[in-house]
Amino acid sequence: MIVRILGEGQFDITDACFESLNSLDDAVEAAVEAGDVEAFRPALAALLAGVRAEGVPHAADALDESDLILPPEDASIDEVRAMLGDDGLIPG
């Protein structure tokens, strides 16, 4: 699966990574739902760091469509709220 972090690039993520990424995504979703900006910022940073750590950078010259799009690390809580689906940022 190809995951894009806006403003940063794409990463190839295996299905095995999604359990750990979903727990990080749950923390982002909980902070957004609670309107807790103090918890939101580190939760989003941890999710994006998890994608970077678990993923492999996708070839920069490849023109492949992303399966998931994540906000940049400096996104506001309102911007992320607008991106959230029923399953958070990462389905599953």
Rank of each mutant, 00 (worst) to 15 (best):
L68Y: 10
A49Q: 12
E54D: 12
A45L: 13
I90Q: 02
P91D: 08
S66Y: 06
F40S: 01
V37L: 11
L63M: 11
G7D: 00
P72Q: 09
R81P: 02
D61Q: 13
A59V: 13
A34V: 09
I2E: 08
A60N: 14
S20P: 07
C17F: 15
L70G: 03
A34N: 13
I2R: 15
D26K: 14
L21C: 13
E38F: 07
L47S: 04
D25H: 08
A53C: 10
D15L: 11
A82P: 02
A45Y: 11
D86E: 10
R52C: 05
D12P: 07
A45W: 05
E73Y: 01
D26W: 10
L48E: 06
L68T: 12
S23T: 11
L44S: 01
N22V: 04
P42S: 15
D25V: 04
D78E: 08
F18G: 14
P91A: 13
L89M: 04
F40P: 02
D86P: 01
L21H: 06
L6N: 12
E19M: 03
R81M: 02
E38G: 07
G55Y: 07
E54I: 05
A82I: 03
I77Y: 00
D61H: 10
M83L: 04
M83C: 03
E65S: 12
A27Y: 09
A82T: 11
G9Y: 04
D26Y: 09
A31L: 06
G92E: 09
P71M: 03
V28M: 02
D86M: 06
S76G: 14
S23K: 10
E19D: 10
E38I: 12
A82E: 03
V3F: 07
S76N: 05
R4Q: 12
R52T: 11
E73N: 00
A60F: 14
V3A: 15
A34L: 12
L47K: 09
L24K: 08
D26R: 15
V37F: 05
L21T: 07
G85W: 09
F11N: 11
S66T: 09
D15H: 06
D15S: 12
L63Q: 10
L6T: 13
E33P: 04
T14C: 09
E79C: 00
A75Y: 01
A62T: 08
R4E: 06
E73T: 00
D61V: 09
P72R: 14
E73R: 00
P91R: 09
L70S: 05
V51D: 12
L89N: 06
D74R: 03
L89P: 04
E8I: 04
P71F: 04
E54A: 13
G35T: 10
L68R: 08
G92S: 10
G50E: 01
I2A: 04
